[in-house]
């Protein structure tokens, strides 16, 4: 039961957020184009940031590889970009999480930094393979600012339920480990 939950919940969270990203873009394109730039919904990246704080390194690496592939294949058809960027983000978070406790406000601030890395990486790759022609200044003015604002707010609103959902995975495990500890004690 426990093992089952541990596998299913991260997959469901990542998959749903991946699909919701696309649905938001297709139905709310008018609203996403604001006077201060184009907002890109990054719910998928946000939920993988939260997941990376709570899962085991190996599990998280394989998840980011799998879902990076799905994201690339489903949305753009140019493989590798999100696979790479998710691996980088996972690597960074796995280092950070030794020092930082994942509270909501800290996660909001952290997500701004990590999303900046994400956006710049994706932009750089598209620039290198010549699928976009805009300059770095235009990119920062027209996309980065609006995207960061939008996603920081998104994190503020959806962060708490997401954190709760992810903590739910590890909750039973802790109890179980206590239980087994107790059992061992009794045997002794």
């Amino acid at each position: 039961m426990n093992q089952w939950k541990k596998v299913i919940i991260p997959i469901v969270i990542l998959y749903v957020s991946l699909l919701v990203d696309g649905t938001i873009t297709s139905f709310m394109m008018n609203q996403l184009q604001t006077s201060f730039g184009l907002m890109i919904p990054r719910l998928f990246i946000l939920s993988s940031i939260i997941l990376a704080f709570h899962l085991e390194p190996r599990h998280m690496y394989s998840l980011s590889l799998l879902f990076g592939f799905i994201y690339d294949s489903y949305y753009s058809g140019v493989l590798g970009i999100y696979m790479a960027v998710l691996m980088i983000l996972t690597y960074v978070i796995l280092h950070i999480r030794r020092v930082i406790e994942p509270h909501l406000l800290i996660l909001v601030l952290l997500s701004i930094i990590l999303l900046t890395i994400n956006e710049f990486f994706v932009f750089a790759i598209y620039r290198v393979i010549d699928l976009t022609a805009i300059s770095a200044q235009t990119f920062m003015a027209e996309r980065l600012g609006a995207t960061l604002t939008f996603n920081a707010i998104l994190m503020l609103v959806l962060g708490y339920p997401l954190i709760k959902a992810v903590q739910f995975i590890n909750k039973d495990e802790k109890e179980n480990s206590k239980k087994t500890q107790r059992m061992l004690n009794i045997r002794k």
């Binding site: 699909l19 990203d21 696309g22 649905t23 938001i24 873009t25 297709s26 394109m29 184009l38 890109i40 919904p41 990054r42 998928f44 489903y74 949305y75 753009s76 058809g77 140019v78 994706v122 932009f123 598209y126 699928l131 976009t132």
Partner: peptide, 15 residues
């Protein structure tokens, strides 16, 4: 019917 649209509109695609 349109199902989805690429979120990062670098390649502006609909599905």
């Amino acid at each position: 019917t349109v199902i989805s649209r690429s979120p990062d509109t670098w390649i502006d695609q609909i599905i």
